[in-house]
C-alpha cells in the first residue's frame, strides 16, 4: 500500500491543498503525454499523417464516434469534455503501470471528483434542457402502472448511486491491479532467484492491467456518455 501514499515532493509532512505532491508530479506527466501526443504529434498537420499523428487521429475518431453513437448527435458538442476525461484517465492509468510510479486514478478522491463533476454536469444539464420533464427519467412509462412507483424509487436510488459506482469502479480497478501485482511481487521476493512462477504471473497480470487501464478509461467515458444521453433524452 506504500505505492498509494501521497507524499510532498520537496520533503516535509504537511500536505496543504497547494502543496506540490507526487500527485502533482504524475498529473503533470499526464499533461506532458497529452501535449506530446496531441500538440507535438499533430504539429505537422499532415494530410498523410505520421505515426504519432495517426495515433492521435485514431483516438480522436474513436472517442468522437463513441460520443456520437452513445449520446446522439446533439451530444457531440460535449465531446471536448469527454475527451479531456478520457485522455486524463487513460494516461494516468498507463503511467501508473510504470514501476515506482504513482497512480493518481487509484485514489477515490480523484475518481470521485471526476464522477461528481460528471454527475452534477449531467443533472444540471438535464434540468436546464428538459425542465421538469427530466423527472420522466425516473417514471418508466412502459412499465405497468402498479409497478411504476416501485421502479421510480429504484431508479432514483440507482441514479444517486451512479457517481459512487462510477468512481469506485475506476479507483477499485486500478488499486486491485496494483495490489495483485504487489502480492505476486511479494511471492517473488519470498522465493528469491527461483521465482519463475510469480514472475510469469506478474507478466500476465501486467498485460491484463494494460488492457484494464485502457478499458476502464473507455468505460468511464462511455458511462459519462450514457448519463449524458439520459440528460439529453430522458424519455426512454
Amino acid at each position: 500500500m506504500e505505492q498509494f501514499i501521497v507524499k510532498p515532493l520537496f520533503g516535509g509532512h504537511e500536505i496543504n491543498w497547494y502543496t506540490p505532491t507526487n500527485v502533482t508530479l504524475w498529473m503533470a506527466l499526464t499533461i506532458v503525454c497529452v501535449l506530446v501526443l496531441f500538440v507535438l504529434g499533430t504539429r505537422g498537420r499532415a494530410i498523410v499523417p505520421s505515426r504519432i499523428q495517426s495515433l492521435a487521429e485514431l483516438v480522436y475518431g474513436f472517442i468522437y464516434k463513441m460520443v456520437e453513437d452513445v449520446s446522439g448527435k446533439d451530444g457531440a458538442k460535449y465531446f471536448p469534455y469527454i475527451m479531456t476525461l478520457f485522455l486524463y484517465i487513460v494516461f494516468a492509468n498507463l503511467l501508473g503501470l510504470l514501476p515506482l510510479s504513482f497512480t493518481t486514478t487509484s485514489h477515490a478522491a480523484v475518481t470521485a471528483t471526476m464522477a461528481l463533476m460528471v454527475f452534477f454536469f449531467v443533472t444540471i444539464l438535464g434540468v436546464v434542457k428538459n425542465g421538469i420533464g427530466f423527472l420522466s427519467l425516473f417514471w418508466i412509462s412502459s412499465a405497468p402502472l402498479v409497478l411504476r412507483p416501485v421502479l421510480a424509487i429504484i431508479e432514483v436510488i440507482s441514479y444517486f448511486v451512479r457517481p459512487v459506482s462510477h468512481s469506485i469502479r475506476l479507483a477499485g480497478n486500478m488499486m486491485a491491479g496494483h495490489a495483485v501485482i504487489k502480492v505476486f511481487a511479494g511471492f517473488a521476493g519470498v522465493l528469491g532467484v527461483g521465482a519463475v512462477a510469480p514472475i510469469f504471473a506478474i507478466s500476465a497480470v501486467f498485460a491484463l492491467e494494460l488492457l484494464v487501464a485502457v478499458i476502464q478509461a473507455y468505460v468511464f467515458v462511455i458511462l459519462a456518455c450514457v448519463y449524458l444521453r439520459d440528460a439529453l433524452h430522458p424519455h426512454h
Binding site: M66, D69, V70, S165, I168, R169, G172, N173, M175, A176, A179, I215, Y218, V219, I222, L223, V226
Partner: peptide, 23 residues
C-alpha cells in the same frame, strides 16, 4: 460492442465493491 462494455462495467463494478470491502 459499446453496450457489451457497459454491461461488463456494471457486472464488474460489483466485484470491485466486494474487493473494496475486503480492502
Amino acid at each position: 460492442t459499446a453496450t457489451m462494455f457497459i454491461g461488463i462495467a456494471f457486472a464488474e463494478a460489483l466485484g470491485i465493491f466486494s474487493f473494496l470491502v475486503a480492502l
